[in-house]
């Protein structure tokens, strides 16, 4: 196992019948880096991410996450990753502490650990007063931050974030990215998909997927230089224009 790479994909492919959703994807993600996974709707981002999380079985190709094979050791992979989905991923009708307790329990944490981490986490989020509040009653931005904290509650090696900042205001997005940076500082690798190109600038490296393939992969700065454009948005526009698939 290569200590430097925490995610390795080689020729990863997923077909749904005749449709090739993800076409021979090959890339590596460094330990502790923030890796932006960009692409238009329907480009195959979510499918690729689901394969890496063990939610979906690849049609062909190889992949390892946190040192475990995504085919044969899916259960081990799941123990060492965190996942926050596009849809909101906490239980709305449960209290804040009940959600934390559940996810702590699912990942095999002990009662005492869960209690200690809960207190610490709520302090960091300034949510101590909301410990007994139903998640339903929290504003969306708080929920997203809470969901992210839950996804790294068990200290995973990699956390997969599927459009985590959809629908929240710019200030909350900013705060959210500060949380991402803090997590990365603790050594957690961040694998994030996003629609917002300003967020792409915050990543260490980004890949841009078009029609199921990776068209570009580098740091935002190098990509801007390579395409000789001022922003990541321009890079994205340039590449996405070549897409034949229609977004859905």
């Amino acid at each position: 196992m290569n200590q430097e790479w925490v995610i390795e994909a080689e020729g990863l492919t997923k077909c749904f019948g005749a449709f090739v959703a993800v076409d021979h994807l090959s890339f590596q993600v460094k330990r502790g880096e923030i890796f932006g996974f960009l692409g238009a709707n329907g480009a195959g981002k979510t499918t690729a991410m689901r394969m890496l999380c063990g939610l979906s079985r690849p049609t062909s190709g190889k992949g390892t996450v946190a040192g475990f094979d995504i085919y044969r050791q899916a259960e081990e992979v799941k123990k060492h990753i965190g996942y926050m989905s596009q849809k909101f991923s906490l239980y709305e009708d449960l209290k804040v502490w009940e959600n934390l307790r559940l996810f702590g329990g699912i990942y095999g944490l002990k009662d005492r650990e869960i209690a200690a981490k809960t207190t610490q986490m709520l302090q960091e989020l300034n949510l101590e007063g909301e410990r007994d509040a139903l998640v339903r009653s929290l504003p969306l931005g708080w929920k997203q931050k809470l969901a992210f904290s839950v996804s790294i509650f068990h200290k995973p090696q990699v956390v997969f974030l599927d459009e985590p900042t959809g629908g929240v205001d710019p200030i909350t997005r900013r705060q959210f990215w500060e949380m991402i940076y803090r997590a990365a500082d603790q050594g957690i690798t961040i694998f994030v998909t996003t629609h917002y190109m300003d967020e792409a600038e915050y990543c260490d490296r980004v890949s841009i997927m078009v029609d199921g393939r990776i068209k570009a992969l580098d740091s935002p700065k190098n990509l801007r230089n390579q395409f000789q454009v001022p922003t990541m948005d321009d890079v994205f526009q340039r590449l996405a224009r070549e897409a034949k698939r229609k977004g859905d």
């Binding site: 999380c53 063990g54 939610l55 259960e75 799941k78 123990k79 990753i81 996942y83 926050m84 989905s85 596009q86 849809k87 909101f88 991923s89 906490l90 239980y91 709305e92 996810f103 699912i106 990942y107 095999g108 997969f160």
Partner: peptide
């Protein structure tokens, strides 16, 4: 419906 199933399936729970 709420999307939490995906989170569960991505967790180590069988």
């Amino acid at each position: 419906e709420t999307g939490t199933m995906e989170i569960l399936l991505a967790s180590p729970m069988r």
